[in-house]
């Protein structure tokens, strides 16, 4: 084993441990702000694994899109909806957690069995290494041109959809005088859709 491959193995082990511990922390930690920052750590170690897999362009895209955009968006969402609330107790929650844990372990064993028993076509052709970015560009503008254009349409749709969904409804004119009002300062009084369960159960 050469020194370079030893270094590669150590990098892989460190990144793998970071990834597993970080993802468990994302799911299990009670404080959601810690979960969001750990999610950023998971994305960063994923980018490191992409570098180990000879994909520097995708690693850069991962850092730019996931750490720079998605994680910041999640942090903003946490700040916007950060209300201390005591969650109501649900009967059978522990049973549900244990059962779903068993299902997930079963799924994990199934995936591992498939991964280790399948006869993969190894070793494949040698990786292109640093030419990967050129190859990706050729793919995107020749045989994957239609998905590339569809992705741009999808991003536009997502942008408009997010604006429409998260927009506040405001009055466009004053109710009494009929004059146009300053947009963005007034918010329509809305009735929350909270339906109390006991009120529903009493009616019949």
């Amino acid at each position: 084993m050469t020194i370079a491959s030893t270094t590669q193995l150590i990098c892989f082990l460190v990144l793998a441990v970071t990834l597993v511990v970080g993802s468990l922390g994302v799911v299990l930690l009670p404080n959601i702000v810690y979960s969001a920052f750990l999610l950023g750590g998971v994305f960063l170690s994923m980018a490191g694994l992409y570098l180990l897999l000879n994909a520097s362009f995708v690693a850069a895209a991962q850092i730019l899109v996931y750490v720079g955009a998605v994680n910041v968006l999640i942090l903003f969402a946490i700040m916007l909806v950060n209300k201390k609330e005591t969650l109501a107790e649900i009967p059978g929650l522990v049973v549900r957690k244990v059962l779903s844990g068993l299902v997930c372990v079963g799924l994990f064993v199934l995936i591992l069995r498939v991964a280790f028993t399948t006869n993969w076509a190894l070793p494949g052709p040698p990786p292109v290494g640093e030419e990967a970015t050129i190859r990706i560009g050729e793919h995107l503008f020749s045989d994957y041109l239609l998905p590339f254009e569809l992705a741009s349409v999808l991003l536009l749709m997502a942008m408009i959809g997010a604006i429409v969904l998260a927009r506040r409804d405001v009055f466009s004119s004053d109710v009494i005088t009929g004059e146009p009002v300053d947009q963005g300062l007034l918010e329509k009084v809305r009735t929350p859709l909270l339906i109390e369960k006991p009120a529903l159960e009493k009616t019949p």
């Binding site: 996931y66 998605v70 968006l73 903003f76 999808l154 997502a158 959809g161 998260a166």
Partner: peptide, 12 residues
């Protein structure tokens, strides 16, 4: 990655 970014924006 593109679809995940769009999904995160719409989901939030």
């Amino acid at each position: 990655i593109t679809v995940a970014a769009a999904e995160a924006a719409v989901g939030l």
